[in-house]
Design a protein around this nucleic acid. Sequence first.
DNA 1: GCATATTTGTCCGTATGTATA
DNA 2: CTATACATACGGACAAATATG
Lengths: 240, 240
Amino acid sequence: MDSLSTASAVLKSQRQRLVRSGTADRVTEILREQIIGGLLPPGTRLSEETIGEALGVSRNTLREAFRLLGHEQLVVHELNRGVFVRVLTADAVTDLYLLRQIIEGSALEIAGRRGDVDLSAVLAAVEAGERAAAEGRWQDLATADLEFHQEIVALARSPRLDQLMRRLLAELRLAFHVMSGSATSSRSFHEPYLKRNRRLVRLLQGKRYAQAAEEMRAYLDDAHAQLIAAFRPGESEAAH
Amino acid sequence: MDSLSTASAVLKSQRQRLVRSGTADRVTEILREQIIGGLLPPGTRLSEETIGEALGVSRNTLREAFRLLGHEQLVVHELNRGVFVRVLTADAVTDLYLLRQIIEGSALEIAGRRGDVDLSAVLAAVEAGERAAAEGRWQDLATADLEFHQEIVALARSPRLDQLMRRLLAELRLAFHVMSGSATSSRSFHEPYLKRNRRLVRLLQGKRYAQAAEEMRAYLDDAHAQLIAAFRPGESEAAH
DNA sequence: GCATATTTGTCCGTATGTATA
DNA sequence: CTATACATACGGACAAATATG
């Protein structure tokens, strides 16, 4: 009984350590949500004094959060000028989709090699998207679509691949906001992919991993082309 | 501790390099080099006061650097306890090699699809390794070996893939230091791969990309197995 | 081009909370 | 349980760079 209770105590204390987070981490989370949610659109300057006052944290704490967001490429840090929400170029979007091709394709391949895959999370994401579309919740549709791809990657059961994908998708949302207001709305961009998501699930349920990977490749190529087209021409990489 | 004090001495000698602007970034670079170079071995606690005093920077500035290193997984941040140089587990090494398989394999595939590849940087890395081995500079051999793989990835011409690989290799060096002093020295680990590096270059020169990718896979599997084997002896999750 | 105001970069002092001997 | 050491977070200060009129 002693060993059991002490073990339980240790677990609790370790759980607490994992759960607890400092102010800087909380601020980072908040700002990240604001950025990927579009409330702080690309190009916005994040003033230390303004943001710090709004969140009720000191400048030092806020700067720690800025460093993290800069490392995630969500903001750019210009010396003595401040931090700005990142403005993606068309080249950056192309690079992001190259990474997605690699990551998502490899994840499917790895899942196929192992064989035993639990598709419940993937399926749940697809159905959440279908419900959102049926009820006209287009923002939720976009979230469910990205969640679908995150769960596809999760099939590989690699912590680092998961983290990499999470950061990639967060960065990609910056691209969605750059072209928000244009012809490409959240609905018209994500809705057509609902059927393809469902089809991918069926292929995976049938253990046709190679074909799923191939369709995913075409899927991402289409999405990439669509996104690039929404970027006005003449917007090639410019060294700032 | 000896390693800590010698590292501290080196830190002091580099203090003059901190001239102007971007102090936090410079501190990050210095600490990163100390960590991947082994002067701050895994498990070392990085005291804010000690390190800050050695580098002549304030705790605020130092904390910004710690945040960045934490994001790169080179250190772990335990709330109210401080930051420690990361101690990799065997599982983490396996995950890192999974990522290497994906990244390096994909890079070769992408290079093959494009066709026009400039192998001069790859070749230079191989030859640097051969020179280092011939002259008994085993630390330089390790550096050249990692540089070889970095240049392989560079063939894909993707900024994000390059950055990802750079961070991955930095993290991997933590594994080398965990088993430093064991039977697996820098020489015995890296030297056998010189011939395989040379062989890979020849395959690429002959535009046999598919075969190069296949050999790279076997290559990395061998390295992974070798590294894991060196971990076995003292493999108990070090809980602080 | 100049003078001024604003903002960032960095450091310091300090109060509080947390972990550990 | 107490004491000590240290991380956390805040607020103030000043220099340096930048933006503004």
